[in-house]
Design a protein around this nucleic acid. Sequence first.
DNA 1: CGGAATCCGACAGGATACTG
DNA 2: CAGTATCCTGTCGGATTCCG
Lengths: 122, 122
Amino acid sequence: MNRNEIRDALSPNCPVRNVLSRVGDKWSMLVLFTLEANRSQRFKELQRNIPDISQKMLTATLKMPGGDGLVRRVAFSEIPPRVEYSLTEKGQSPLPLIDNLLSWASENMADIIESRKRYLLK
Amino acid sequence: MNRNEIRDALSPNCPVRNVLSRVGDKWSMLVLFTLEANRSQRFKELQRNIPDISQKMLTATLKMPGGDGLVRRVAFSEIPPRVEYSLTEKGQSPLPLIDNLLSWASENMADIIESRKRYLLK
DNA sequence: CGGAATCCGACAGGATACTG
DNA sequence: CAGTATCCTGTCGGATTCCG
């Protein structure tokens, strides 16, 4: 029984893994955080708001696993094309969570970031 | 100005990135969650509690960036060696956060997990 | 404009073997 | 027992090009 089988056996019931599998990647949190509920944003707009995301990753993150209902996508049949994204009601549910994360970070991350810098500088 | 320079320029002030850089990897959350404050656990014990973590990754995660003060390590000079790990006070601070994450997950993750499965099955 | 498709490098992390 | 040290692979994601 190798490590992958073990993980497959455990994973379906492990919420930590499940959460991370959805929002633990490089961009999801940032995109959810940048999206707003009552104001939809166009693709380009989002890209401007997250300046260092590539087009590929933005598309991928917005589609994530084929639409799990966190993000609403509205396409207009115009030329040039226009697509607007916004948060669904469910999509808003993780936001307080992210806020918690951030306020925790502001209290506790300072020296963590320092040690991280030293670490990254080898 | 390529994407990395942009990120380097933004990153130091972006808490989302900073948080993820510390706990967004594959094992950190799980290890923090498995550690307990008032009961120290031995290396092997932790490994048993996270059955599918490799020894390499457990060591790496426990050391993370050279010790940012979340985890306490106590080594006993015995033969055979014994090393005990526990959470510091600071290490406990993210725990409520993880709890939030989990309770959010239990309410919202069900169909996310479903769509994720469909996604992973291509 | 909003993508999809392709190519490719870096690096996280697994398997294995060895050590004090 | 609690690690190091290597080696090696898969995957994430960046750059680039093409399309309706």
